[in-house]
Design a binder for these strands. Structure first.
Length: 830
RNA sequence: GGGCUCGUGGUCUAGGGGUUAUGACGUCGCCUUCACAUGGCGAAGAUCGUCGGUUCAAUUCCGACCGAGCCCA
């Protein structure tokens, strides 16, 4: 027997790693394979990959999702598309500021701004490097040479240019509105940066007096805010207070510069069973107050300043810190005799994630992107986008229905993209930079080519170069953008907007947006908003929304639960003979999970086969190995078995004579390949992979191989041709899922790597093509053939006959008569 | 508390108004070493979350509830 061309006895993690390393080491070949070449003439398929945020560890669920994006990228290349699979890293934002503060034990605002930015940049670069490594370990075929970083000038200039464009069109506005503010850190923060901590607070009952002398008792934890009270409300169906509605009630504490009474009105948000069922609404005690002020059209008071101190409106308490003012107010109420009672109470209060400081909602002049006026238009665009799975479109539509206020985009932070604007000395004019320029207004003057605009009407008044002398002392904006302002340009950036107009022409709407469902309302929504505002087009052709990676019991993985599984440990499991073990906190007790070998190919196969896109998936290394490593072994063995027979010189030309079993398996193979090709076209990883797995581990080895073994050993040309043709094309179709596995086999056995194939292998076998009468007839025989083989194997088992011993009394049924000779030989029927 | 999504053998999963509900892993029994024990044959194991409704007929459609998850309060 000739020795197999595939020398390795089995697939192993060490083999996988050495193939992978060689693959990434040859940069010229890598570029030829995977780099984006917009001039290739092929249909362009740009993937708007979610740029990961480097924070030290990359969540295994995200790595799994990323590997599926790679499957899409590779399958689209296989279908002949020119794929741009960018490698981008999101590096703007608050997280890295936290890390630097923690590392240096110094607050951001105690630094020189430039110095702090440099610290952030060097710190995040270390994290980025670890992420690149994991990306390659899981086999991503990104265009790493074109890596983009959202904190780099080329990326930030796009964000700034879009801002300027929207500002000119009037879709970006500045306004004084309530914002969440951390008075200790001195910065606005986003909703997402607020968390709740339990604290003991005093709930005080305060007596208020109406104009007709009726006395009310209102419970509050924030008596210092009485000075900012705009209205007192009760529930519309609360009959206890119906008679009070419409009256005026006097504020029980002294104030300064405002009317001393407020109206009593109704509002459905009041909880009648809380305290006395009467609520004072202040600007702003909490988010509900903000909503009530807006709905009732009340003018808010500024009761707390940027230092967290009470303003003049607080009368005697002006200048005190919030907590001091609260105690002073309680004392004053007690002296006046208006304090009915005070009880200690546990309450979850909103604090900043960063400093654990209680946050306040205060009025600040900030920048906003207008969005409420454009929802209908956006919906039309969303209708044109194909969602995978279709049901996940609903996440977006529901969120769009809830949009009621504009998007605040400015932040008082540093490691973000700067808002590109300067103000004239009299504040009536603004200066904006020319498109494509990255500027840092907090430390630079406007560059040459900047335009001067009227701050209100947005009228273009001329160039900065001409008008500079008339503007007086120009001040640069110090604020920066919300990071979503950057992230929501990713599709524009990777599709070539501004930087490569000729590519953009061909590449937009961006072909493919893959992402997790938890950021539909941020990343997806804001991106589509931008596409509508800037280009009046849908941002994408396909949006692919995957579920989340959960722990083995279906719970979210988190540091606090202690149920996380590190991605690298799974990918390296089995390397160098080291096994993997994970201690994971389960619902009842800590469970120890063990696996011997997983690696990237098995990990990818698992994700591709185990869950449909859109479903949450449980990550259990034990299960990954048990269910899918065997599949790789089986496929490897089939290839290794085939590789001991000479490869016919021309695999593309069908031999003159094929035996019935060859024609049968070719018909089945063709059917599988057709459905796999259709599935790859539909971005349906699950169906494609399942189809290949079923064929490659079932029909092919168990039935066809057993039928043709003796012919193969007799050096039958038709059998060798059929087997090799199938194995070769199978590896091509399977290469998106397990690129290194198929690369190794196809390169070794056929001298041509499956990852270099750029058109789906055509199966045009004479007479047996799927859909032809003969093809259908042969496929219909499959079930019968499998049943017959099982029947013989079962009969041998029952009679204690070994499989290679003859058996008597079994007759090939009439329907399988064309296989009679083969089956008789295969089973040694007598 | 609100909105949305999901709920199929021990675990994961396919499917879908109609006779015995798909497959995989695991379990149990048997076989075997001629590419593959990372194999083969076979068995057990599911009132398709619960309760109502629509229907000649529901696990499949509708509603409520329960449970899980996501996002937002």
């Amino acid at each position: 027997m000739p020795s197999p061309a595939l020398p390795e006895k089995r697939w192993s993690i060490d083999l996988e790693k050495s193939i992978q390393e060689a693959h990434y080491a040859d940069n010229a070949l890598y570029t030829q394979r995977y780099a984006f070449n917009p001039d290739s003439g092929k249909e362009i398929f740009v993937i708007d990959t979610p740029p990961p945020y480097p924070s030290g560890t990359w969540h295994i669920g995200a790595v799994a999702q990323y590997s599926m994006i790679d499957v899409i990228a590779r399958s689209q290349r296989l279908l002949g598309k020119e794929v741009y699979f960018p490698w981008g890293v999101d590096r703007n934002g608050i997280n890295i500021e936290f890390v630097v503060e923690r590392n240096t034990k110094r607050k951001m605002k105690t630094y020189d701004r430039a110095e702090f930015l440099e610290l952030c940049r060097t710190t995040i670069e270390e994290f980025t490097e670890a992420m690149r490594h994991t990306g390659k370990r899981v086999g991503l075929s990104c265009d790493y040479d074109r890596e983009y970083l959202t904190d780099a000038p080329d990326y930030r200039s796009v964000t700034q240019s879009i801002f300027v464009e929207l500002f000119k069109k009037g879709d970006v506005i500045e306004d004084l509105r309530p914002n969440i503010y951390d008075p200790v850190e001195g910065t606005t923060i986003a909703d997402a940066e607020v968390e709740r901590l339990p604290r003991k607070t005093k709930l005080v009952d305060v007596r208020w007096t109406c104009e007709d002398g009726t006395e009310l008792v209102i419970s509050t934890t924030r008596p210092e805010m009485i000075c900012a009270c705009g209205v007192v409300v009760v529930h519309p169906e609360d009959e206890r207070y119906t008679h009070l509605v419409g009256q005026k009630v006097a504020l029980p504490l002294e104030t300064n510069g405002r009317e001393k009474t407020v109206n009593i009105m109704t509002h459905p948000s009041v909880k009648s069973d809380f305290g006395t069922g009467i609520l004072m609404v202040c600007s702003f005690g909490d988010q509900n107050d903000v909503a009530v002020f807006r709905e009732l059209g009340l003018t808010p008071f500024q009761a707390i300043d940027l230092d967290g101190k009470m303003t003049d409106v607080a009368g005697p308490f002006a200048g005190m810190k919030v907590i001091e003012a609260r105690n002073a107010a309680i004392e004053a109420l007690e002296i006046q005799g208006d304090l009915v009672q005070a009880v200690e109470r546990n309450q979850d209060i909103p604090v900043s994630e960063r400093g654990k400081n209680p946050v306040e909602i205060i009025l600040l002049k900030e920048w906003y992107v207008r969005q409420t006026h454009i929802q209908e238009k956006m919906k039309e665009h969303v209708d044109e986008i194909e969602f995978h799975p279709p049901r996940n479109r609903q996440f977006l539509l529901d969120w769009m229905d809830n949009i009621s206020i504009d998007w605040p985009i400015s932040r008082r932070r540093w490691y973000h993209t700067e808002i590109p604007i300067w103000y004239s000395e009299d504040n009536s004019k603004v200066i904006v930079p020319p498109s494509g320029t990255y500027v840092q207004p907090w430390r630079e003057s406007p560059p040459s080519g900047s335009r001067v605009l009227d701050r209100v009407t947005r009228e273009d008044l001329g160039s900065y170069d001409d008008l500079e002398a008339d503007l007086g002392l120009v001040t640069g904006e110090e604020k920066v953008f919300d990071t979503w302002m950057d992230s929501s340009n990713s599709n524009l950036f990777v599709s070539g907007y501004l930087n490569h107009p000729e590519v953009f022409e061909k590449a937009f709407p961006t072909a493919f947006r893959p992402q997790g469902k938890e950021i539909v309302r941020t990343w997806l929504y804001y991106t589509l908003l931008k596409s509508t505002l800037v280009l009046d087009q849908p941002g994408f052709k396909h949006v692919w929304i995957d579920g989340l990676g959960m722990d083995p019991w279906g719970r979210k993985m988190s540091k606090s639960l202690g149920n996380g599984i590190d991605a690298d440990s799974v990918l390296e499991c089995g390397a160098g003979g080291r096994t993997g073990s994970w201690k994971v906190k389960g619902p009842d007790k800590t469970v120890s999970l063990r696996a011997n070998k997983i690696g990237s190919e098995c990990f990818r196969l698992w994700k591709a086969c185990d869950a449909q896109v859109g479903d949450d998936f449980h990550i259990n290394p034990e299960e990954i190995e048990k269910k899918y490593f065997g599949v790789l072994t089986k496929l490897f063995n089939v290839a290794r078995f085939a590789s001991q027979f000479d490869v016919p010189t021309n695999l593309d030309e069908e031999p003159k004579h094929l035996e019935p079993e060859d024609r049968w398996i070719l018909a089945e193979f063709q059917r599988t390949m057709n459905s796999v090709e259709a599935a790859w076209s539909d971005l349906d990883i699950y169906t494609a992979t399942q189809g290949l797995k079923t064929f490659g581990t079932g029909l092919l080895p168990s039935h066809y191989l057993e039928m043709v073994k003796s012919r193969l050993y007799d050096e039958d040309i038709a059998a060798a041709w059929t087997l090799h043709r199938i194995v070769r094309d199978f590896m091509a179709a399977f290469s998106p899922v397990c690129p290194f596995f198929t690369h190794h086999i196809s390169q070794t056995v056929y001298g041509h790597s499956s990852v270099d194939i750029d058109s789906f292998p055509v199966q045009a076998f004479s007479e047996v093509a799927a859909g032809t009468e003969e093809g259908l007839r042969l496929c219909k025989l499959s079930t019968e053939l499998q049943d017959f083989n099982s029947q013989v194997w079962g009969a041998k088992k029952e009679s204690g006959t070994s499989l290679n011993q003859p058996i008597q009394g079994i007759v090939v049924p009439e329907s399988l008569v064309e296989f009679e000779g083969t089956l008789t030989r295969m089973h040694k029927l007598e």
